[in-house]
Design a binder for these strands. Structure first.
Lengths: 280, 280
DNA sequence: ATTGCGGAGTGGTATGACCACTATCGCTCA
DNA sequence: TGAGCGATAGTGGTCATACCACTCCGCAAT
C-alpha cells in the first residue's frame, strides 16, 4: 500500500496530515466529483502507476459520500483504463500500457464513421510514427521491430497469428517513435479496426507482400531514413486498406453503399469473440 | 429473449423493435455486460444518435439485473460521451459531437506524457487535417472558417475569448477535413492541452501574429492549396508551442494558486521516491 | 383560452446487506 | 521443527430498497 495521504487504514501517524487530501466534495454531480478527485491526485503526482487505492469503503468515508457513488466513479476510471480493480484484492492504478478504450469503436458505430476514414486516420498516425521512429529509435527498439518482422514471416501460413504479429510490429514502431500520445491514439484506431480485420484476414491474399513491407519499413527506420520509412508505411497501409475493401466487397451479401453503411454492418456482421489483443 | 420496447425519440410507435433486443445477460461482470449490450445495439444500428433509452428501472427489469448495475454501465457510457443523461427526463444517445473525454488528460498525467509530445501529436493531426480540408472543404465549411478568423481578429484584446475563437477555428478546419475520426482525436488532444493553455494565454505575446496565421491557413484552404495549408498550419502550431514553452518557463518564479498545471507531476519526474513498500 | 399547480415518471444518491474472491495468519499435523 | 491447510478478515461485486430532485405534462382553477 502506498501512502497516498488519505491515511492508510492502520497508519494513524505516517504523514497522514494529508488525510485532507480527499476533501469533502462540494456541489455538482457526486460521482463526477470522485473522478475529479482521483484525477487531481494523479495530476499532482500523489497517485502513480501501480499504486493501490484505499478501499471503496474507506474512500466513501473520506469523501463523505456513499460507497455506490465511489464505486461508480472508480468504474468509470476503470473503463478508461486508468485504474484496475481486482476482486478481493483491491483497486490499483493501471501500470501497463494505456488501455485500448473501446471509446472510438463506440463513437464510430454511433456516428457512422466510415471504414475509409478509419484507415485514413490510421495512415496519418502511423506514417508520422514511422518518421519519428526513424529519427529516434534506439537499438532496443530496433531489436523489437526486427523480432516482430521475423515473427510475421514465420506465421505466413497462419492468418490469425499473422495478424497478431502484424499488430506487434506496428506497436513496436509506435513505441520507437518516442511519442506515447500518438502511439495511444494509434492503438485506439487500431482497436476500432481490429474487429473488422479479423473477419477478412482469413482471405487475405497479400500476406507475404505485407511482411516484405514490414521488413522494408524496418530497414528504413534502421537506416534513419525518415522519408523512406514514411513512404514505405504509406504503401503498406494503402495495401491493407485495398485488401480490406476488396475482401469486404467480395463478402457482402446485401447492398449497402455509402460511407457509413459498410462499417456498421461490418462490425456486427457476425458473432465475434472478445480477445485481448496486443500483448505488449 | 426479452422485449424492451425501445422508445424512439419522437415516434412513440416507431418500429417497436419488440424483439430480442435485450437478452438476459450471461456470464461475466454484470456491469460490463450492460456496456456490451448497449454497444451492440449501437453497432447494429438499433440505437442512433438522439434516441432515448428506456428508463433505468425498465432496463434493469429487462436485463434481469439490478438498477445500480444498469446505472453503472450507463454512467460509463455517459463518461465516454456516447450517451447523455438528463435528470428527470431520461437517457439519450449523444447526438452532438463526441464529447471531449478526459481520457487523454488522465492518461497523460498517469503516464507522464510530456507537453512537447502533446504538441507534437497535435501538430501531426492538425497538419493532416489542414491538408484534407484544402481538398474537401465545402463552401459552408469555408464560411465557418472565415467567421472564426474574423472573430479571432475581433478579440485580440481579450485573451480569454481569443482562446475560444482560436479553438473554434481549428475545429472548423477539422470539420472541413471530412474525417470525423481524426477530428475527434484532435479534440481529445486539444482538450488535454486546454488546461495548460488557459494558464499561459494571459501572457501570450503573439496573438495578432497567431490570428494572421489563421487567416493565412484559411486562404490556403480556400485556394485548395494543400501544401501551403499544411505549411502554414505547421508554422502556426510551432509558434504556439514556442509561446507555451517560453511562458511556462517564465512562470517558474512563483506559485500561482489554484490548481496547478496538469503536467506538474511529469515535470517532477521521479522526484518523489516511493516511501512505502510498493504494491508492485 | 390562459395560467398555475401537482402528480407521475425519471435520473441521482444513500443505506445496508449479502455474496465471491483473495490474501494472510495461525493452527494442525506429519 | 517444518510444511501444509483451513479459518478469517478484508476487498470488490451485486442487489434491494428507499428517498430526493428534477422534468414533463395534463388537469383544474381562473
Amino acid at each position: 500500500m502506498i501512502n497516498i495521504g488519505l491515511a492508510m487504514r492502520n497508519a494513524p501517524n505516517a504523514k497522514s496530515v494529508s488525510t485532507k487530501m480527499f476533501k469533502r466534495l462540494g456541489e455538482g454531480v457526486t460521482t463526477d466529483q470522485v473522478v475529479k478527485q482521483i484525477r487531481e491526485l494523479i495530476e499532482s503526482g500523489e497517485l502513480r502507476p501501480g499504486d493501490r487505492l484505499p478501499s471503496e469503503r474507506t474512500l466513501a468515508d473520506r469523501l463523505g459520500i456513499s460507497r455506490p457513488s465511489v464505486r461508480t466513479g472508480l468504474r468509470i476510471l476503470s473503463a478508461m483504463g486508468v485504474l484496475q480493480s481486482r476482486h478481493g484484492s483491491g483497486t490499483f492504478m493501471s501500470s501497463g500500457p494505456p488501455a485500448e478504450s473501446q471509446l472510438l469503436r463506440l463513437l464510430a458505430a454511433l456516428h457512422g464513421f466510415s471504414a475509409d476514414a478509419m484507415f485514413e486516420a490510421r495512415r496519418i498516425l502511423e506514417v508520422s510514427l514511422a518518421g519519428l521512429a526513424a529519427e529516434r529509435a534506439t537499438d532496443e527498439h530496433l531489436a523489437m521491430m526486427a523480432e516482430a518482422v521475423a515473427d510475421t514471416y514465420a506465421s505466413l501460413d497462419d492468418p490469425k497469428s499473422y495478424l497478431v504479429y502484424d499488430m506487434q510490429f506496428h506497436r513496436a514502431v509506435a513505441v520507437a517513435s518516442g511519442n506515447p500520445i500518438v502511439a495511444t491514439l494509434m492503438d485506439m484506431v487500431t482497436a476500432a479496426l481490429y474487429e473488422m480485420k479479423v473477419q477478412t484476414i482469413e482471405h487475405a491474399t497479400h500476406l507475404e507482400e505485407s511482411a516484405a513491407m514490414h521488413r522494408k519499413i524496418y530497414q528504413a527506420i534502421r537506416a534513419r531514413k525518415a522519408d523512406a520509412a514514411m513512404t514505405a508505411m504509406t504503401a503498406h497501409l494503402e495495401l491493407a486498406q485495398r485488401d480490406f475493401a476488396s475482401e469486404e466487397a467480395a463478402e457482402k451479401d446485401g447492398s449497402h453503399g455509402g460511407k457509413n453503411g459498410g462499417f456498421r454492418a461490418r462490425v456486427n456482421g457476425r458473432k465475434r469473440k472478445r480477445s485481448s489483443k496486443g500483448a505488449s
